[in-house]
Nucleic acid binder design. Structure first.
Lengths: 85, 85
DNA sequence: ATAAAATACAACCGATGCGTTGTACATCAT
DNA sequence: ATGATGTACAACGCATCGGTTGTATTTTAT
């Protein structure tokens, strides 16, 4: 008797990682525009640079919790607002 | 004329990183207990192991957005619920 | 008291976040 | 046309996340 197959992490998540990150980025961009800020402006207020914000909004990274917190502060909003849907 | 001091990131955040992560971990633990799950149980349902959940709940890591999403799914709750305060 | 279950902690290591530099391109005003 | 402003993309490097193994400590049940 041998183990012929080991399937790991069969838990199916309702949303793909890539899709989720795109949505997050789009939401952040939406809020930033509402506030009338440029990427560089947002970045500078929280000690980051424009390129980092660009990557985030493009959904090209999977940002850390604290990073998102900093973003929310830069946008003068609640962290929870970034996650609406 | 010389630059004698460069202060970077003078933006003062209302909450320290460490404190925020402790709170996040505590909140996750709270929800997990409400659901009557063990760390291992939560971990296994989303293809992780007990030790990873422990580090998260202890506030010893700054988890990624998608990681938190997986946790929320394992807890059968909304991602937003993990961030309540 | 003993065993089982749950939780905590430390170390290794590959993958990746994120700060940074450099640059391209598009839009707008002068 | 030129310059200023906003956005996009790629690469480098250090730090850290997170999967994993190993083990210790605590809690609960019998």
């Amino acid at each position: 008797m041998y183990i012929i197959s080991v399937v790991k992490n069969t838990f199916i998540l309702p949303m793909e990682k890539e899709v989720l990150l795109k949505k997050l980025g789009a939401r952040i961009r939406e809020i930033r525009k509402e506030k009338g800020m440029s990427q560089a402006e947002l970045a500078n207020t929280i000690g980051k640079d424009q390129q980092s914000i660009q990557r985030l909004e493009a959904g090209n990274i999977n940002p850390s919790f604290y990073y998102l917190y900093e973003i929310s502060q830069g946008l003068k909003t609640e962290l929870r607002e970034l996650i609406k849907e």
